[in-house]
Design a protein around this nucleic acid. Structure first.
Lengths: 345, 345
DNA sequence: CTGTTAGCGCGTTCAA
DNA sequence: TTGAACGCGCTAACAG
């Protein structure tokens, strides 16, 4: 792979076109203060020489890179991939590029990635999914560029974020099961130490149960890691030790599907014997049988809105509210019996 | 969000430490020619001042940005998301950042994205999935930085790539069905105009059929768009018009799962009445019942190897071969009857 | 409407 | 082992 080395600069274009580099810069940047004739001449030379502006030099001089950094837990996770697509689409729309990095939700790595992104002089930062600790607030506060959180929130409300009301969503999902009249509604959750997704959804479940006729029972709770396998195991354990369970709320679609399969493997049917409701509404939920009833989280929109919000901050535009909660909905399909659901919100 | 403006530079550090900026530059870049004492002093000042090197300025001066551009069809597609994770992991390992952009497989957009990435002075380019046309070869040839293709190939072998042998893989998958002794083996493919995935897999299917006892029958072929829905529709159409079909090879897992559901909805069973084999081995394939038999494509590895290859080119290291074909395998689960399969390759 | 002139923050000779 | 000086390619006043 032999490559040519001649870098052709704005200066070459200027000389060739018989104008100053300032003029070339103007036409390249669409500055209207250029006589049409000269503009055309410059444009011709640019094409002829195959000139390509150097964004790095431009970035150094203008102190803007038109790129934003994105810290995401794991791009191979459907949920975040969908979110990222929303981010990228809006970024493209506003002529920004995205530098993507996976954090695996590790605090250390998150901080380090943010640091690296800042070194690269990104114009803004999108931070997805992870829990916001004081270390995060510290580095974000020290940042000279705006930061927006997505699919997570800052309890202290110091940082702008866009997400959904997790507690409420989990509560509604559970309530659907309550309305179906079950005596024992189990819960398959994520780690309670996960303050972003795990804990809030647990709280929502608990609140719904406590407001119902039945009462909260620790024995009906199982914790997994959001993955299929853990949902399967949890359900199996539940069915074996709690024969009275006739409904379950799993806080991720993968776990919910795993739960459905566990039910089926034990010779029971969904939703006839056990109702199952999930959370997220990733494609998987409508690619299994029975179709999974789930909480529909607007993943794409969360990404898109977060990115849009970031552009506003980057352009110093006025922002009504930095804390935005997007609408979620109950997508009732075939793993639950209740087909209608009044939106109480 | 009020932000501070003071940018602290290498020059500030120099002054504060009582040395020249050249020395600071040396310690920042790990140049050994610095007396330990001065190094420590500089390091202290750096920490104290909270100095953060400006990668853009560095990029301009050194003509290296330690970032690579990645053009991908669609990050929300599981297959590519997995691939991207492989890329990102290796990139991180070699201290590169990734600028990600979605092309949706649109030729125009691909070219435009490459152009933008080149403007950003990426040190290398990873191009995923799309077909390589002359326009592509042209812009890649004109590029001063190395380009590696992943999950696609350049028939003209002008560009390096890493992928799998699609024809052979499709052929083997079909052959498994042949060995099960079916009279009519259907095919649910992608667009034949898709020279990257659609056409090769079709060729593989056809070759396998033609080498078998049975003969190729156009009526057993249906084309979809790799998505679940199209697989479902294709299978339904197949079952309705070709009652003799007892096996089908779908060129994507989503279509294969859709096919399975169509079979089931028509009151038949998989694999007892109809054997189904897919392609890709995305997580979905092991999250449905019956578990899907499929061609396992090393998605993560394709990304990882491609990125590794790119680093070699970027460092002017010796590369044995620019055309690498990774190993795939037959993942036989429960949607086919044959449980063993000799690897003939 | 166009050109001149400073930097932007840092890597890198070349001397010392 | 260290410093001075130049240049990377471009934007942004400021003149004219």
């Amino acid at each position: 792979m032999v490559k040519k080395k001649e870098t052709i600069t704005i200066y070459d274009v200027a000389r060739e076109a018989g104008v100053s580099m300032a003029t070339v810069s103007r036409v390249v940047n669409g500055n209207p203060n250029v006589k049409p004739v000269t503009r055309k001449k410059v444009l011709d030379v640019i094409r002829q020489l195959g000139y390509r502006p150097n964004a790095v030099a431009r970035g150094l001089a203008s102190k803007k890179t038109t790129t934003v950094g994105v810290v995401i837990p794991d791009i191979s996770n459907t949920f975040y991939a969908e979110l990222t697509r929303g981010i990228e689409d809006i970024a493209t729309m506003y002529h920004y590029n995205i530098i993507l990095s996976n954090s695996d939700m590790k605090k250390e790595k998150e901080i380090q990635l943010v640091e690296a992104l800042l070194e690269k002089q990104v114009d803004g930062l999108l931070f997805l999914g992870g829990e916001i600790t004081d270390s995060h607030r510290e580095i974000f506060a020290a940042s000279t560029v705006p930061v927006v959180l997505a699919a997570t929130r800052d309890e202290r409300r110091e940082l702008p974020y866009v997400t959904i009301d997790q507690i409420q969503a989990a509560k509604e999902a559970t309530t659907i099961l309550v309305h179906e009249g079950h005596e024992q509604i189990a819960f398959i959750g994520g780690p309670l130490t996960d303050s972003v997704n795990g804990y809030p959804r647990y709280v929502g479940y608990k609140e719904a149960i406590e407001e119902s006729e039945t009462s909260f029972d620790e024995a009906l709770v199982r914790l997994g890691d959001y993955r299929y396998r853990s949902g399967y195991e949890a359900m199996k354990s539940l069915l074996e030790s709690q024969p009275g369970v006739s409904a379950v709320f799993a806080v991720s679609d993968e776990m919910a599907v795993g739960a459905i399969h566990a039910v089926q493997d034990l010779g029971k049917r969904v939703p006839e014997d056990v109702s199952v409701i999930g959370f997220e509404n990733i494609p998987l939920s409508s690619q299994v049988r029975p179709l999974l009833s789930t909480v529909s989280v607007p993943m794409y929109d969360i990404g898109a809105v977060a990115m849009r919000l970031l552009t506003k901050y980057m352009n110093d535009e006025q922002v009504e509210s930095g804390q935005v909660y997007l609408q979620y909905s109950m997508e009732l399909r075939n793993s639950t019996k209740l087909k209608e659901w009044e939106d109480e919100r």
